[in-house]
């Protein structure tokens, strides 16, 4: 169950303001949010059979991961549970679209297989991009960026409070779990007879804790409608604009030129 502790630590890691130093830290959260949104829009716009085109978008993830020192393998492993529902997205395509498009050696590749992989790729890339964004600017940074984008303060506050509640909830689950297992040695999981009271108590306890956190916010001038933003002292306007223009340009290029296809043909020419 110390996976819970790992999960809590991971959420706190994400909660940090900015995990980057140097040039990367001077990019404004709003610029990062715009680039991430650009990435998501470009990614989902690829045609269902354009797997090669979609794969070219991984350039952003690789460059960001390496440049900002985000461990890509560790991130993939941590997010693996989120990928499971994404796998189901393309299952229907496998059944209904059985037209063979080409053969890989002697293996027929159907349209359904290709579109299922493309859908899976879109899901994984989107999750990774959103995760990278949170790692880079933190929840506070994201809220600031959303405010700058003109999202209503109330909506942003709900997002922030939901995030806080998630952390509080996980901490309460961990406490209750520890209390349970210490008095139920040898049990695997929670006995079904205790599920109801466990869930009910968890809800009450986490709501109490969440109310305390909310009270603490109220006592320090929070008016219940919006969060006040601090300034990103390290953020530079010039570098943020440059960062946004370069990446959006790259996305446009990748969307209009079949880069991987061209590279493949070029390499094929040598062979």
């Amino acid at each position: 169950m110390d996976r819970l502790q790992t999960a809590i630590a991971a959420l706190h890691e994400v909660d940090r303001e900015s995990s980057t130093y140097g040039v990367g830290s001077r990019v404004h959260p709003l610029a990062r949010l715009i680039v991430c949104m650009g990435f998501l829009l470009t990614t989902v716009s690829f045609a269902p059979y354009d797997l090669a085109g979609l794969l070219s978008m991984s350039i952003y993830l690789f460059i960001t991961g390496i440049w900002e020192e985000i461990p890509i393998r560790k991130s993939l492993s941590g997010l693996r549970y989120l990928f499971v529902p994404v796998c189901f997205l393309g299952l229907a395509n496998l059944i209904y679209d059985k037209d063979v498009i080409y053969y890989l050696g002697s293996v027929p590749i159907t349209g359904g297989m290709l579109s299922a992989f493309t859908l899976f790729g879109k899901g994984v890339f989107s999750i990774m991009a959103a995760f990278f964004l949170l790692r880079l600017i933190g929840m506070q940074g994201l809220c600031r960026a959303l405010l700058r984008l003109g999202i209503p303060g109330g909506t942003v506050t709900v997002l922030l409070l939901t995030w806080r509640y998630l952390i509080v909830l996980l901490k309460e689950i961990r406490r209750m779990w520890q209390a349970y297992t210490l008095r139920a040695p040898g049990h695997r999981g929670i006995h079904t007879g205790a599920w109801g009271s466990f869930a009910g108590l968890l809800l009450l306890r986490s709501m109490d804790r969440a109310a305390d956190v909310y009270h603490s916010m109220l006592l320090r001038g929070y008016d219940g409608t919006s969060i006040r933003e601090g300034t990103e002292s390290r953020a530079g306007t010039g570098i943020s604009i440059l960062y946004t223009i370069i990446w959006l340009g790259v996305f446009l290029l990748l969307r209009s030129i079949p880069l991987f296809h061209l590279v493949g043909s070029w390499l094929g020419g040598f062979m």
């Binding site: 706190h12 909660d15 940090r16 506070q140 804790r209 305390d212 929070y222 006040r228 933003e229 601090g230």
Partner: peptide, 26 residues
């Protein structure tokens, strides 16, 4: 319970929360 009082990521951010809510400049 200090855990209830502290809800932001770093000490600085948490201590700054109140003054920022009262609209003070940075």
């Amino acid at each position: 319970d200090s855990e209830s009082q502290l809800f932001l990521s770093t000490v600085y951010e948490d201590v700054a929360f109140g003054p920022r809510n009262y609209g003070l400049d940075e």
